[in-house]
Amino acid sequence: MLLEIDLGPLLPELPEFLVGLVLFGVLWFVMARTVVPMFEKTYTARTAAIQGGIEKAESAQKEAAAALEEYKAQLATAREEAARIREEAKSQGSSIVTDMRQQAQEESARLLASAKSQIDAERTQAVQQLRTEVGGLATSLAGRIVGESLDDDARAQRTVDRFIADLEAQSTSTGKA
């Protein structure tokens, strides 16, 4: 019954059917063996590359953040240290100034004292010398006036001394008045 129907263009020609099968089989084989694996290989490589790039960027970002943190910490310590040093210098400076002032005062006092004592000594020496010389002069003057030498006379010497002592007492009392 079925064979009697004229299928017309729907009736396949066997060679075409078989050739179609074979050609399609070959195509399928080629696609499965080379074409699709090649594409998939490229796609896998691409995915890996993109993922690797993202990971790399992430790690770089992390590194940068860590570096920034470290830098900030360093900056903070440096600031602290600078402040500390400044403080130290300030206190040191003021102590140095105090020391120097004290030293200078001491020095000046010492100089003043030594000058005074020297002056005193020189004065005493000068007075001593003056007294001797004035005594001698007065004695020789008196001797010239009297006409004889009084040089070796111990009495004359005592007289001169007494005179000078009187003079001194007089000058001290007038100085006080």
């Binding site: 075409e16 179609g20 099968l21």
Partner: peptide, 12 residues
């Protein structure tokens, strides 16, 4: 438009 080829593909 030759149905032999098409039957082959449909069978596959």
């Amino acid at each position: 438009s030759k149905i032999g080829f098409v039957y082959a593909l449909a069978l596959c």
